[in-house]
């Protein structure tokens, strides 16, 4: 099944105001940068964005915060973005902070047909407020519900025309689970190859989870904390 769309315009067709969008990435690593740039261009507003982080002030999801296109952010860590913190503390931006493992599992659950699950993470904290608590193996757990999205936008290293994806390094992170949880999943890849070129033994995300795939025009791949040692 051919999932290829020509470009980012085609890929993001149907994204509109008020939608819930999942975006893969950890920090600036493995984020769908071409799609984010195009969301800014489209100007769609009142978005609920589910992403582990919120980018930095002038890159990643920070770009959509600058233009005030995000109504609500669901994340685990947002410490690198001053504009985010300002909008959150002033009440302009609605924020739901979720433990990182629960966020990953909630996305996976959404895509895997599991409506909710119990986890010990967050028990006894404000994350647990209003959530059902049950004891398993003598330990309290809280009920966390699956997350779903109108669109999931992921970034992969290589993809084929069938939508099969391979990620590189730590750019995998949340991308595979979010790919599973989107009603429509868009994959932007660095390299798009014909079906049959990727070894089926090494596919990370099977094409069934991907509805649209395109090769990104360019990838800046900005490094957030360049850290080196001396030779």
């Amino acid at each position: 099944m051919n999932k290829v769309v020509k470009n980012v315009e085609q890929a993001l067709k149907g994204v509109s105001h008020g939608m819930t969008i999942m975006l893969g990435g950890f920090g600036l690593c493995g984020i769908p940068e071409n799609s984010i740039a195009h969301l800014v261009k489209l100007g769609v507003k009142n978005l609920t964005c589910i992403s582990n982080n919120a980018g930095v002030d002038d890159f990643g999801l920070g770009l959509l915060l600058q233009t005030k296109q995000i109504k609500k952010m669901i994340s685990s860590y947002v410490g690198e973005n001053d504009e985010f913190e300002r909008q959150m503390l002033s009440g302009e931006l609605e924020v739901e902070l979720i433990p990182q493992g629960s966020l990953a599992e909630r996305c996976r659950a959404g895509g895997a047909g599991i409506p909710a699950f119990f986890t010990p993470a967050g028990y006894g904290t404000e994350v647990a407020e209003g959530k059902e608590v049950r004891i398993f193996n003598g330990k309290p757990h809280i009920l966390e519900e699956a997350l779903y999205a109108d669109f999931a936008i992921v970034k992969a290293w290589k993809g084929d025309t069938e939508g099969n994806l391979i990620f590189k390094g730590t750019a995998r992170n949340f991308n595979p689970m979010m790919a599973m949880a989107g009603k429509i999943t868009i994959a932007e890849v660095e390299e798009l190859v014909p079906a049959g070129e990727l070894d089926p033994n090494f596919i990370h995300t099977p094409g069934i989870f991907v509805q649209r795939i395109f090769q990104g025009e360019k990838f800046e791949k900005r490094i957030e904390q360049r850290t080196v040692r001396q030779k």
Binding site: S76, G79, G101, S102
Partner: peptide
């Protein structure tokens, strides 16, 4: 004052 999020710490 400061809201950075819990990241993976709670898990």
């Amino acid at each position: 004052k400061m809201v950075k999020g819990m990241g993976g710490a709670m898990d």
